[in-house]
Design a protein around this nucleic acid. Sequence first.
RNA 1: GGCCCCAUCGUCUAGAGGCCUAGGACACCGGCCUUUCAAGCCGGCGGCGGGGAUUCGAAUUCCCCUGGGGCCA
Length: 479
Amino acid sequence: MSVRVRFAPSPTGHLHLGGARTALYNFLFARQNQGQFILRIEDTDSSRSTEIAIRSIIEDLYWLGLKWDEGPDVKGEFGPYRQTQRLFIYQQYLKRLMEKGYAYYCFCTSEELQAQREEAKRKKITFRYNRRCRNLPFEEVEKKLERSLRPSVRFAMPTSGETVVNDLIRGKIVFKHAELDDFIIFRSDGTPTYNFAATIDDATMKITHVIRGDDHLSNTPKQINIYRALGLKEPEFAHLSMILGPDRKPLSKRHGDTAISEYRRKGFLPQAMVNYLALLGWSYDDKTTFFSLEDLIKFFSLNRVSKNPAIFDFQKLKWLNGYYIRQLKNSDLLALIEPYFREKFLSFDREKLMKAIPLIKDRITVLSESVAWLDWLFVKEIQVETGSKEKIKKDNSLSLILNAAYQSLSQLDDFKAEKIQNVLREKVAELQVKPKIFFQALRLAVTGKLVSPPLFESIELLGKEETLNRLKSFIKYFA
RNA sequence: GGCCCCAUCGUCUAGAGGCCUAGGACACCGGCCUUUCAAGCCGGCGGCGGGGAUUCGAAUUCCCCUGGGGCCA
């Protein structure tokens, strides 16, 4: 039987890092086994689900390069792929469960249940539903229904024995039935609960491997019992541990960006995201670090997925992103950073930007940073960083240096980096100043910054006329 | 509170009884290169949560504790 896995997000917000990793692992597992990867939207909580979120999740998954074989936007024979459109299926299976005696109406009110809860608390025992409605006589059920009481529906769990989950990552986990409750599978408003809907979906979509977050581990015995009650074949389970923030709490907004779309916007590359996420909880061996999606399809395996929760390391992601930026062809990098320049400048010289790429390629770690590295090249008037002048030499050598540089450069016809360097170095020797002082002064006058791309190449790019203009006005106002 | 999961450098991890004087990567520190910042190269710092047990021998197996997390309430 061919492998079928799914990623089943709730469209209540953006695709976040944890979800992306789960999707990635599912995708890899499917591809590696020539199986099917399915996208299912768990939008039963319609109050919090939005169309925008669905679109954004889909967009982010595609951006990461994770394509699915069946989903809301890709037809497949097990659809529909949105839970809100599958209500009729849940009702069908609910009916079957009721007929087989594995589900029953529960007329207990929330007040009654609350009272039970409080009593349990008082007696310091664990609250468990007392199963009062489990064996209601048929006539009584009928009578209550006729009085149009709106019952919920509970699943009749086995009362003894145990359910064993053979988790592909964690191994054997035993849950005693005595610990498990007759949980609600249909609410009194006629909507299915998560555990029921997800299970029926997985079963009817013929999912063979459920790879999902750790937070569902405790739900698994309930779900397995639904499969069994229905006589359906259970899938394999693999539970991934969570991604945590630096404080070891589940990753959330207060730890910084958690949405994939945010990373995309700032200029992270999908290659880096995929590589980083793959390594966050999985490893191939003791040294290999770089993996393309193709590599991962080849090398990924569930039994090398780590059991411990992983703390998200933004630094390492950035480092990886810088690495992938350096691997890019210049023309590709140009295309990627252009949007950031369009956002900042009404118009700019695209040729110039292309030529500037080698100067920043080793320096940027996120695409959006390219603007701060090169803005001086495209503005009419540079902004001199406050306090920067004070950081370089304070005596009057500043004007001396800049005048000398002006003189040399103005006499230079072949305005190329190498030539620029030559004449300036001559000046440095002649004036007997430290190269650092000389060049930092010049850098500040030309770019307005003390940290910039390599100076001579920068000056060449700026062009003779503009360079001289900047020197002149800098001398006038600052030196 | 009940049940469940997890535990190796600050972080991600390698490690499935002797190959471990615990390996790699990020971060950090130092050096080289150098006009700044990077990149690159070289080097350094740094860890098996604690206690028992099994064994000739334990990071590795078992038990307890502690800590973190999840689900249910």
